[in-house]
Amino acid sequence: MMLSVRDLAVSRGGVPVLEGVSFALAPGRALVLRGPNGSGKTTLLRTVAGLQPPFSGEIAGAGERIAYAGHSDGLKAMLTVTENLRFWAQVFGTRDISAALRDFDLAQLDSRLAGTLSAGQKRRLGLARLMVTGRPVWVLDEPTVSLDAASVGLFAAAVRAHLAAGGSALMATHIDLGIPEAEVFDVTPFKAVPRAAKQDEAFL
C-alpha cells in the first residue's frame, strides 16, 4: 500500500506554511524532504504522522502504518537501553528487540541507563525504536543529528534493510544521509501564500 499525499496544506498555529503538496511513496522507496529552516518540513511530517490535522487536502495510507521519530527521542533517562526498547516493543505489540540492538550497535550498552548515554548514543537508541514498532512507513525528522560518520552508516544500513523488506521512509534533513537512492522532494516551491490563520479568518 502506498503512502500518498494529495494537495495537502499544513499549518503551524493555524497559519498555513505549505500548500499544494502532493507526493506518493511506494513500498521499498525512500523520500527525502529538503528545504530551508522554518520551511515547514517538521509540520509536514507531524501532519503525515497524524499528530496534527491537515489544513486541507488528503493523506492516504498513513495512520496506523506510521512510525514517527521527531526531534526528541522520547527516552526515559531512568530506564536502561533494553527497558526503553522493550517498552516500545510491547506498546506496538512486537517482541524481538535483539535485531534493533544489533543493527544500531547498542548491544554492549544494553544495561546502561539511557540517561548516561552520549547524545549520539541516545539518538541511535531513538532510531532503534523504529525497528521494534514493526510499522512499514518510517517518518523521520532530522534522523542523523548528532550522529558520527559510523553511526550514519549504521542508520543508512538500517533504512536500506527496512526498504528491502518492503517498508518505506519519509525523511526531512539538511545533511547527507548516505542513502543516494532516495528521491528528493524540495518543499520550497510549495511555500504557502501568506494568509490569515484559520482561527483569524472569521475576524478579517
Partner: peptide, 14 residues
C-alpha cells in the same frame, strides 16, 4: 511531554 514520549504514545496503537 518534555522528552517527547507523549507524541510517540499518541502515534502508538493505544
Amino acid at each position: 511531554w518534555e522528552d517527547g514520549s507523549l507524541d510517540l504514545l499518541a502515534t502508538a496503537p493505544l
